[in-house]
Design a protein around this nucleic acid. Structure first.
Length: 547
RNA sequence: GGUCUGUUGGUGAAGUGGCUUAACACACCGCCCUCUCAAGGCGGCAUUCACGGGUCCGAAUCCCGUACAGACUACCA
């Protein structure tokens, strides 16, 4: 029995590869357009590391007027999660990463679900068998375990290659007999590689990497008739005309396999770009490791939605770690957006990036500082409706007041930067809502100081008036403080601290603590302007009682 | 065990043989300013680029070795 006859016998109804080559023609795109993809397994919600990859791939395609498509790699049904693919699509959409083609979107290079491409893969496997470049293998899992044990004991390379590849030399007629006898089998590649030959591949991100030719007769078709990742990757990315394979660097070690597959199949290999993983410091072991979906809450993209960190801030962070020169560029062009920046592969980090939470926070704060009070109000309301309904009610009740609060020191060259997430609005201004203030028992955190409450009472009852300008207001405080023994200049006070009760700033701190219970708050003048006189009186009495 | 990749301050990092007495950003600390809080400004924070050799007039940058970390080594992707 010849190889051709064996191929025909194994896959009698499978079309010739020329059919598919004809069907999936070259894309017509402009010069330099990047065709790339996001190709996850349908295991449910997207992981931060995957989102990062999808984000970069999307930017690369977009900026080059190329294509970013979504392919679902569901060749392993054991891993599959119900509605996993839909969850992926939704997560991507939440982050404004919208493929232009692919699963549940459509396109001319589909189907984009690998389990629906079985005949396509088999067509190429058939051609490989016909050319003697693939063969059925009947080795059982138990046999393979035995071989591995021997290889471990003798310290040989582990795998199915060379003299270990026992099914490699099976006679075609015997193969046929065993298949007729319903013996289960898989299809392996008949590797032509030589493990002693070393080459250099230029990865778009990693640069030159050294590798030995692959000589493993890897499995290309499983006993269920579906391909393995390696084979599906080669066939799909060829037929879908992917120019750049952007994927995690855990794939780097299988590069030799993929290169050989492309070569034996007669395909032009794509440009590979292996992305370094997002890492995290494991507090238990003290080691750095890949961010894990199971162990780390921040690995889930939903975490950021829960925490109230806006999507654009997360994307800004991804851009920051994605291209090392992005951060500086953004600093120089604060009014521009991510899409105005041109990402390049060679500016992507080569080694793993530690997930930097404080950096994210800072980026979020800067992001918030550029938004308007109305925008923040609306978004905080939307967030609170889901996560903090009672606060949402207050926001609705005091809409104008809240916007006015959010407007304090907003805009201009030096905006405040104290809101980094939606819940911060409550943390920042809770004391301005009577309902929340009343709920707190003994709220004052800073009563250790020797405050002169009698001065405070006098100031509130006789001096303070709403409706003045900030300059007038402050002049009043200064005058009052001076009369009551506070230093009006820092230098005076420093020169002779014994002579004063304190500085004007100490007097102001007292007012601040009385109103807000804390020593840090937005501009006191604005807060007082937004508080009615009854409330002010109440706060004064409460404060006196607390001291 | 084997193969591959990486290693620059607390963190992200720039750096591709001389312009580096190692940018920039975050964090932290200090000072200044605004006669309030922030914001802002200035300064401090690696005399040294994991370690050991080598090449060179000259190395964080090139080569070799060691250590450490990570990934892969499935009919998982």
């Amino acid at each position: 029995m010849t190889n051709q006859e064996l191929a025909q016998y194994l896959f009698p109804d499978i079309k010739d590869v020329s059919y598919y080559e004809e069907k999936y023609r070259d894309r017509t795109l402009e010069e330099g357009a990047i065709v790339t993809r996001f190709a996850p397994s349908p295991t449910g919600s997207v992981h931060m590391g995957s989102l990062y990859q999808a984000f970069m791939a999307n930017q690369m395609a977009k900026q080059s007027h190329g294509v970013f498509f979504l392919r679902i790699e569901d060749t392993d049904h054991k891993r599959e999660v119900e509605n996993g693919a839909a969850a992926i699509l939704r997560d991507l959409k939440d982050f404004d990463i919208v493929p232009s083609e692919g699963f549940s979107i459509g396109g001319e290079y589909g189907p984009y679900l690998q389990s629906e491409r079985k005949e396509i893969y088999q067509s190429y496997i058939k051609s490989l068998i016909a050319r003697g470049l693939a063969y059925p293998c009947f080795c059982s899992a138990e046999e393979m375990d035995e071989v591995r044990k021997i290889q471990e004991a003798t310290k040989e390379r582990i795998g199915y290659y060379g003299r270990w590849a026992t099914c490699r030399s099976l006679d075609n007629d015997e193969i046929r007999k065993r298949i007729d006898a319903k013996e289960p089998y898989i299809i392996r590649l008949r590797s032509q590689g030589d493990f002693t030959k070393k080459h250099i591949y230029h990865d778009a991100i990693k640069g030159d990497v050294e590798y030995f030719e692959n000589d493993m007769d890897i499995v290309i078709m499983k006993s269920d008739g579906l391909p393995t990742y390696h084979f599906a990757h080669a066939v799909d990315d060829h037929l879908m005309h992917t120019t750049h394979v952007i994927r995690g660097d855990e794939w780097l070690p299988s590069l030799p396999i993929h290169l050989e597959l492309f070569q034996l199949l007669g395909f032009q290999a794509p440009q590979y770009a292996h992305i370094a993983p997002v890492m995290k410091l494991d507090e238990e072991t003290g080691n750095i490791r890949k961010l894990s979906k199971r162990k780390d809450p921040e690995a889930s993209v939903h975490y950021y939605q829960e925490m109230g960190i806006p999507v654009p801030a997360v994307k800004l962070y991804l851009a920051t770690i994605g291209n090392t020169n992005f951060e500086e560029w953004y600093l120089e062009h604060p009014e521009q957006s991510i899409d105005d920046f041109t990402f390049t592969f060679d500016k992507m980090p080569v080694s793993g990036t530690l997930f930097d939470v404080s950096k994210l926070e800072n980026i979020a704060k800067v992001y918030f500082s550029k938004r308007t009070a109305e925008q923040i109000y609306e978004e905080t309301l939307a967030y609170s409706l889901q996560h903090d309904p009672s606060f949402a009610l207050l926001l609705q009740k005091y809409r104008e007041k809240t916007i006015a609060l959010l407007n304090i020191e907003r805009g201009g060259d030096r905006p405040r930067k104290d809101i980094g997430a939606y819940p911060d609005v409550k943390k920042e201004f809770w004391y301005m809502y009577e309902e929340l203030f009343d709920q707190k028992e003994n709220p004052y955190q800073e009563v250790q100081k020797n405050y002169h409450v009698e001065d405070l009472e006098e100031y509130i009852t006789t001096i303070y008036q709403k409706g003045k300008t900030q300059e007038e207001w402050f002049q009043d405080i200064k005058d009052f403080a001076a009369v009551h023994g506070y230093a009006t200049s820092r230098k005076d006070y420093k020169a002779n601290p014994e002579a004063y009760k304190g500085q004007v700033s100490d007097f102001c701190e007292m007012i601040r603590v009385m109103i807000t219970t804390q020593t840090i708050s937005p501009n006191l003048y604005d807060l007082m302007e937004l508080m009615d006189s009854d409330t002010l009186q109440k706060r004064l009495q409460l404060f006196q009682k607390a001291l």
